[in-house]
């Protein structure tokens, strides 16, 4: 059920003629590290993609969980991919309760007095927390903060993601574009019916980005994040860009997902030493990268520390 291994992973993705993550401080230019010129993609941008992917492939119908059922709803949502909000009803069934009758929406049953209390969930806050974890994939995975006092309502998720940085400095290109229409009548009059407006687009011609991530088996236990969730997370990281097409993004794709699986919960090697084994490098005869083929990703699988296996998901 719960995880028995620590995982550290490297995510490689690229962008071609698109803006992987705009910077609100710089008029939506691609995020750049001003000192080095490397492109950046924030952790929250990547998490958003994971959430959207899970929301796409799992039903987001708001309904009661069947007894012992784990659901894959997404708590922090984007309207763009969802139906309108509507009311919902849940029953207060717990994962570890024996399958008893399901409360119906019309006549909500009172909770039976023989609630089996899990260790450490003596109070309502813990119950509510566990219940949120049962229903919402993103709460289970990334954690959430609840509006109760300090710390007691905090769920720390097992999955930790870092900022992604491009391997080499990227340049941001600015394109002026025209639109053969105007928004208001006043504008049309001003232009004597010429009806054109100018717009701006920012793109990165090509950038290969790398992010690191960690999955803690101990924190997974606390949120009931299980093997099935982990499989889904890998799938999401591998395919999330395929379902995130838009005018701004250009062509983005996951180019590599290297998972280091440790034999134990505590781990068998330092994460940074494992990450150093994945080295994307610009090929020697390439001056400027314009495609993934211009990079060679060397994966050093020789002499992995005992108890660590490398799994290539992508």
């Amino acid at each position: 059920m719960s995880l028995t291994n620590r995982y550290d992973f490297v995510l490689l993705f690229d962008v071609k003629d698109g803006n992987p993550n705009g910077d609100p401080d710089a008029g939506n230019l691609p995020r750049m590290d001003a000192e080095t010129g490397n492109g950046l993609v924030t952790d929250v941008a990547l998490k958003r993609k994971v959430r959207n992917f899970v929301a796409l492939i799992h039903d987001q119908e708001q309904r009661e969980p069947a007894p012992g059922e784990k659901r894959f709803e997404i708590y922090v949502r984007e309207k763009a991919i969802l139906n309108l909000q509507h009311q919902r009803a849940y029953s207060a069934l717990k994962l570890d309760e024996p399958a008893v009758s399901v409360a119906s929406e019309a006549a909500p049953e009172k909770k039976s007095g023989k609630d089996k209390k899990r260790k450490g969930s003596g109070d309502d806050v813990n119950k509510a927390r566990d219940w949120m974890c049962q229903n919402f994939f993103d709460v289970r995975t990334f954690g959430a903060v609840m509006s109760t006092g300090t710390n007691c309502g905090q769920v720390r998720g097992p999955v930790q993601l870092t900022f992604a940085r491009s391997i080499d400095p990227v340049i941001a290109q600015e394109h002026s574009i025209t639109r053969m229409a105007v928004t208001t009548e006043a504008e049309a009059e001003k232009q004597d019916g010429d009806n054109r407006t100018m717009g701006r687009k920012h793109t990165v011609p090509y950038g290969l980005y790398m992010a690191h991530g960690f999955v803690s088996a101990f924190l997974a236990e606390q949120t009931q994040f299980g093997e099935d969730d982990l499989t889904l997370l890998w799938q999401a990281l591998g395919q999330m860009f395929e379902h995130d097409r838009s005018a701004a993004r250009g062509e983005m794709a996951t180019r590599g997902l290297y998972v280091f699986k440790h034999e134990s919960k505590l781990g068998n090697a330092p994460a940074h030493a494992l990450f150093e084994r994945i080295k994307p490098k610009l090929k020697v005869d390439v001056a400027v990268a314009r495609g993934f083929d211009d990079y060679a990703v060397s994966v050093d699988e020789t002499g992995l520390p005992a108890g660590v296996t490398l799994i290539r998901i992508v």
């Binding site: 708590y75 949502r77 909000q85 849940y90 029953s91 509510a128 949120m132 903060v145 609840m146 109760t148």
Partner: peptide, 26 residues
Amino acid sequence: VSGVVSSRNVETAMKSGVGELAQYIE
């Protein structure tokens, strides 16, 4: 996101009452 999970709403929903839980980032 500016909000946090409202534990009151969760408890209401758990008691098989009716409540909107999800947060919309917009």
